[in-house]
Write a protein that binds this DNA or RNA. Sequence first.
DNA 1: GTTATGACCCAAA
DNA 2: GTTTGGGCCATAA
Length: 107
Amino acid sequence: MTGNDAALKITSLIKKIPRGRVATYGQIAILANRPRNSRQVGAVLKSLPAGSGVPWHRVVNSHGRISDRSHSASEGLQRCLLESEGVELNETGRIDLNVFQWRPRRR
DNA sequence: GTTATGACCCAAA
DNA sequence: GTTTGGGCCATAA
C-alpha cells in the first residue's frame, strides 16, 4: 500500500458526489475512515492540480457555507458552480444541508 | 529526519 | 451572532 492513499481516498469520494449535491468536510472525512481528519480534506483539496476531475466546489463546511480560503477568488467561482448545478443558497449565503447534502447509500 | 501552516470541527464563554 | 482554545494529520519547506 502506498502512503498517499488518504488523498486518493478523499479525491475518490469527492468524485462520487452527484451533481446538484454537496458534502461537508466532516462527511468526507468520515467516509474516508478518518472521522477527525476533516482538516486534511481541505489540505488535499488545496493541493489538487487543476483539471484533476475533482468537484471541489461541492465540498463545504459543516455550516453549509463556503470555506474561507486564504487567497484566490475561488469562493465566488464555487458559488457560481453550485448555483449552476441547481444548489440554492440562503439569504445568509448558506446552503440548506437538509436538502442539498449528499447522502451516500441512501440517495 | 523536523517545523510550520492550514479550503476543518467541536465545545464553551 | 462572535471569539477562544484544543485536536487531528496531510502538505510544503
